[in-house]
């Protein structure tokens, strides 16, 4: 029951990406090309999703716990640091080069297109390299303080 309900949440997201046209890198890139053939669709998608989520989150968080788990697991970090901003910059360069972001590319895998698989493989490689670098950094830091 729980797995089916969670699957449906994923399906709804994937269908939303498909309907909104956000599975299409050409459309995403054209949003950012204000100086060219501008397509504002992405802004409408993000603002609508954000409004629905903001209202829904407020209602859901009034409850003491989610349906299938003992407590809500929201991110707790409040630090504004170089890692956050630097990461967002790298993400932006990658998004601007490829036209894919993870939330759009994962559903787009379902179209079976080769380019989407190529992007996703590179994405996963980048995630593992970043995690390796962060682990290395943490090791160095703990060696320095020891």
């Amino acid at each position: 029951m729980q797995i089916v309900a969670i699957y449906l949440a994923g399906l709804l997201f994937g269908l939303g990406i498909s309907i909104s046209g956000m599975a299409n890198p050409a459309k995403t890139l054209n949003f950012f090309d204000v100086a060219g053939g501008w397509d504002p669709s992405l802004a409408v998608v993000m603002v609508t999703a954000l409004l629905v989520a903001a209202v829904g989150y407020r209602l859901v968080l009034r409850r003491s716990a989610p349906v299938f788990a003992p407590r809500f697991q929201l991110p707790t970090s409040r630090v504004l640091d170089v890692k956050l901003v630097g990461g967002a910059v790298l993400f932006g360069i990658g998004w601007g080069l490829s036209g894919f972001c993870p939330g759009a590319s994962l559903p787009a895998l379902g179209t079976g297109r080769m380019e989407v698989f190529a992007f996703t493989a590179a994405l996963i490689a980048g995630m593992f390299v970043a995690r390796g670098l962060m682990r290395l950094g943490a090791l160095r830091a703990s060696a320095a303080t020891a």
């Binding site: 956050l84 360069i93 490829s98 894919f100 179209t111 380019e115 190529a118 995630m127």
Partner: peptide, 29 residues
Amino acid sequence: PAVEVPVAPWMVLVGGFLVGLGVTFGSGC
């Protein structure tokens, strides 16, 4: 749904790798 890729294959690959680094360091997309 349409998937039209207006960029060169290397841009998809380099872009994907940078997105992977960025979302991990930046904790989200």
